[in-house]
Simulated scan of single mutants.
Amino acid sequence: MTDREEIEQLASGIPATKKVTTRRKSSDGTRKIILDAALEVFSEKGYDGARVDEIALRTGLNKNVLYHHFGNKDELFKAVLEHMYQVIRERQNDLQSRDLDPVSGMRKLVMFTGRIWVQHPQFLRLLHSENLLEGRHVKQSDVIYNMYSPLTATINDLLTRGQAAGVFRDNIDPVDLYISISALTAHYISNRYTFEGIFKMSLMSPQRIKHRLEHAADMILRFLLVDPAGHDGSKGC
C-alpha cells in the first residue's frame, strides 16, 4: 500500500475538515520517520557513503515516498541538517541567559553549548560531513541562517551588559566568541577516541565531562574579564 492509499483509507468516511488534518498528521509522521532514519544513516556513513535505498529500507517505506517528501538526496540531507540545527537552537533557547548577570550567563552559555555536543554526537558527525562538502547545504538554507540571529543577539546582550558593568573587555566580536566556545567544547567530543588512545584514559565519564566544560568556561571568562584575577567567574552559577 502506498502512502497516499494508506491516507485515503484512513480518511474514508471522515468529514472534509478532519480529512485535511488526518492527511497533514500522516504526512508529518512520515516525514519524521524519514528524517530519523536519514539522521542515522548520514551520521553513520556521511553524505557520500549514505544511500537512499538504505534509508528507505530502515523506514520500511517505498523509496518513491522519500523522493515525494524530499525530492532528492541533497534535499534530504539539507532537511536533516535543518532538523538538527533546530533541535540545537531550541535547547539553546532554553538558556534564559538574559535573566542572569553577564558573568553567570556567559558561563552558563558555555556549559550549555558543551552539553549539546555530548547529548547529540551525531550532530558533530553531520557537521564533519558537511564541512567536507564545503558547507554547500548550509549555505543554501535560509532556515539555518535565520536560526542563529537569536543566538548572536543573546551573546551581544551578555557582552553589552558585561561591558556596561565594567567586567567585560570592549571590542569582542560575538561571532568570534561563539566560534571559540564551540571549538573549546566540540573538539573534545569529536576527537575523544584518539585522545583516549593517546592519553590512555576515559574522557566521557560525567565527572570528566563536567571538568572539561568548567575548564572551557574558565578560559572564555578569563578572556572576557577586565580583571580575571580579581573576579571569580564561577560565582553566581
Results as ranks from 00 to 15, higher is better:
Y178F: 14
N131F: 09
N62W: 02
S26W: 10
D176G: 06
V65G: 01
R107M: 05
T154C: 05
F77A: 03
E134N: 08
L127I: 10
E82Y: 01
L203N: 05
L224S: 07
I198V: 14
S27L: 14
G46T: 06
I198S: 05
R24Q: 15
G114A: 04
T152N: 07
G105H: 05
I33M: 10
V175Q: 10
I34K: 02
N93Q: 11
R51H: 11
A16H: 08
E6K: 14
I33K: 15
D218G: 14
P206F: 09
P150A: 02
D28G: 01
M1Y: 08
W117K: 00
L221P: 03
S104G: 06
P174M: 07
K63W: 00
D170T: 13
S234C: 09
L177I: 06
D3F: 15
T21D: 13
Q207E: 13
T22A: 13
L76W: 04
L203Q: 00
Q96L: 10
I33V: 13
I88E: 09
P121W: 02
P150Q: 03
H187D: 15
E44N: 04
S27D: 15
T2F: 04
H120I: 08
G230I: 11
V52D: 03
T154Q: 14
K45P: 01
T185N: 05
N131K: 07
A229C: 10
S12Y: 12
G197W: 10
T113G: 02
P102G: 03
R208K: 12
K210N: 14
E40H: 08
L39I: 01
N146D: 11
K78G: 01
E214F: 07
R51D: 05
Q9V: 12
K108H: 11
V167W: 05
V175H: 09
L132G: 03
E196K: 08
Q9R: 15
R192K: 15
T17M: 13
N191I: 06
D142K: 09
Q140M: 05
Y188V: 04
V118M: 07
V110Q: 04
M84S: 01
K19R: 13
M204S: 11
L159G: 03
T17F: 13
R91C: 03
D227G: 06
E40R: 10
D99E: 14
L66T: 00
N146K: 08
